[in-house]
Design a protein around this nucleic acid. Structure first.
Length: 294
DNA sequence: CATATGTCCTGAGAGC
DNA sequence: TGCTCTCAGGACATAT
């Protein structure tokens, strides 16, 4: 489940594509259902082939590739260049999607292939085992609708503590569930929500509105620490081995997990209690009943 | 409006 | 061993 650290690692890994041109877009035929793309392939192709890649970015858990108009679209040249009038490719990995600049884990789950210009003939791949991922080519207006502040809140690594507090403090939901709300704060998923709450010593079932004002700066600090540490380790590759960097290598943060997928094992903080697994909003939550009291 | 639940999908692993 | 069943969860649609 690529979350902020994994998605940012993928984005950094594809940086070498900046300055290249998309020569061809292909969707390999497989026995699997095809993933959702928009617009349809023929329109996607017409708009992307020939375009030059201007920059990469990340919006929450999405990888963004900014384009400049190509030579096959001379009429577009006038409004390109300032980064606002350009189309963007938005990769949404969701559960098992990967953005790769290397050989994929296997061939049958390669969903899209962007052939790039350059001597090395590199390919940008979207690989997705379960196929829940989405790839879109968005005009500036559509990008704002799909990825703007109305849909995706401030990034977890950018948001100030006071804003985090302001956006969540009145919430009646459990803090673990609220942290997963991408409109409130963007980039946290199921894995890091548990890790963050363990680090700050907050019980995951505590309602946001029950937290004391002094808890928010601590939660904010723990959030940054966990996400930055995971980013340094290039994300977490879980037991199923799905997540890989853009270079098709595993991350290393799974060896630092203190609670996630550690039910029944001793808490590394107190070394007395065992980690417990509960279900909140149909998702697993892991915590230490001793270090995280209500 | 805020909050809760159902749905999509494939493959791994459990249980018999 | 080979079958069936359950589960994993991000984002969005729909329900309460």
């Amino acid at each position: 489940m690529p979350e902020l650290p994994e998605v940012e690692t993928m984005r950094r890994g594809i940086e070498p594509i900046v300055g290249r041109r998309v020569l061809q877009l292909r969707r390999p035929r497989t026995r699997l259902r095809s993933i959702a793309i928009s617009p349809r392939l023929s329109d996607f192709r017409r708009r992307v082939e020939g375009a030059r890649i201007a920059a990469t970015a990340r919006v929450g858990k999405r990888v963004v590739v900014e384009l400049r108009p190509g030579p096959n679209r001379p009429g577009e040249a006038a409004r390109g260049g300032n980064g606002r009038g350009v189309d963007r490719i938005v990769f949404e990995p969701r559960m098992t999607g990967l953005v790769l600049l290397a050989n994929p884990p296997d061939d049958e789950h390669v969903r899209l292939v962007f052939e790039l210009s350059g001597r090395s003939r590199r390919k940008l791949l979207f690989w997705d085992r379960r196929g829940l991922g989405v790839v879109r080519l968005l005009s500036p207006r559509r990008f704002d609708e799909e990825c703007g502040p109305a849909r995706i809140g401030p990034d977890a690594l950018e948001i100030p503590a006071a804003v985090l507090c302001q956006r969540l403090a009145g919430n009646r939901r459990a803090v673990k569930v609220a942290l997963l709300d991408q409109r409130a704060v963007a980039g946290i998923g199921n894995l890091y929500a548990s890790e963050i709450l363990h680090r700050v010593g907050i019980h995951p079932e505590t309602r946001c509105c029950e937290l004391r004002p002094g808890d928010w700066p601590k939660l904010h600090a723990a959030m940054r620490e966990v996400l930055l540490e995971a980013l340094r380790h290039q994300g977490s590759t879980l037991r199923d081995g799905t997540y890989r960097t853009a270079g098709n290598r595993p991350g290393g943060y799974q060896f630092c997990h203190r609670v996630y997928q550690r039910a029944g094992q001793p808490c590394l903080q107190c070394e007395r209690e065992s980690i417990v697994r509960i279900v909140q909003a149909q998702r697993s939550t892991f915590f230490c009943p001793r270090c995280q009291r209500r």
